[in-house]
Design a protein around this nucleic acid. Sequence first.
RNA 1: GGGUAGGUGGCGGAGUGGUCAAACGCACCUGACUGUAAAUCAGGCGACUUCGGUCUUCGGGGGUUCGAAUCCCUCCCUGCCCA
Length: 379
Amino acid sequence: MEAWKLKKLIKYRRVGELATKSGSVQTPFFMPIATKGAVKHLLPEEVRNLGAEIVLGNTYHLLLRPGAELIERAGDLHRFMNWPGSILTDSGGFQVFSLGARAQKRFGANGVKLSEEGVEFVDPISGDRHFLSPEDSIETQLKLGSDIIMVLDECPPYPCAWEYALVSLERTTRWAERCKKYFENQKLSLSQRPLLFAIVQGGVYEDLRKESAKQLVELGFDGYAIGGVAVGEPRETLKDILEWTTPYLPEDKPRYLMGLGKPEEIVAAVNAGIDMFDCVIPTREGRHGRLFIWNEQTELSNDKNASENFYKTINISNEKYKEDFSLVDPSCDCGLCSKYTRAYLRHLFTVGEPLAGRLASLHNLRFYLKLMERLREAE
RNA sequence: GGGUAGGUGGCGGAGUGGUCAAACGCACCUGACUGUAAAUCAGGCGACUUCGGUCUUCGGGGGUUCGAAUCCCUCCCUGCCCA
């Protein structure tokens, strides 16, 4: 359990910086999510000014709308959305999981159909059917001009039986191999070549996580992601999954914990040797009125009760902030906090002004990016 | 003055003899949110409660009935039409 203590941060193995074809990114880092080519409510330059060097886009969404060819004609995703930094694109694998259940409800049992060849999706908006193979996903991500591209994976839901987790992980490995093969056949020049990351699966099973990591490392990738986390399993399992997986990942390659997480989870994961994160929490929860507030009196912590420790969250639309004319977070430098009061922000939420979601997104993203700055300094 | 439609919880608006403390929407309160089908979703929203219930509500008053927001009488108020 000692490995879980904060002290270990001092020994954090780090890549230091990650070089992509669009520039370098200091690790550990957090990627604001721009699924459809925009960080919701925010200008790219605002995201940049908050301290982000890289954002995440999604193959699945951009493939459906506006289409990879259109973005290719625009130059690439960077130019299309006017983002000056690096971009990581997710492969669409997560949508197999996230859309599966709901698509099934709405379009019948065939909402998402998995086969060895790939995934068949129903577009949730148009109802159109689409097929995505591992090769398609890589091809699309190359057209988007992404700096870090992810292999197509299957992210099994929780709970998931050992037997299925095994079948799934092995298919993910085969898909990863196909992705790599397709990728290398493109013979990209060094300046054009994105990084290709594989995704470790294996559910909540120690032997399967280990097996998945070993198989993928044997194939060899530029970086390794840990996927299939925070899909409904008990929170404590995250710690186990990291401990089961990271020993089998190369020390000198970046590690990416997909989709995570809460501040204390990120602190814990950095402590466990993770370099890269993305999560909807700061932006989504911001839009929904929850704000992250620093507690300056305490050190960063991976404690489960961290929300009563180095930070807390408040729901700004609560009645108790109605006449709270104090600043949202006096120790924050997001630009909102030095100018606007809690009462004002609450008012914006109450009356449904779009500025509310904007300010809250700015603030929460700054909190997350500041957290990463503090973690980089913690060494 | 005559005719007519109507008065339901903060608002809008169902209900027209029992299963009504009263649909639904809005507003309000609280909570969730982890590779974004999320500016979304869920719960609460008369009072008290030992959480099983108990009590006071559907303009006011009075009736009919075992039983009324629902039927009858009467009063008050509002909209519309005609003078």
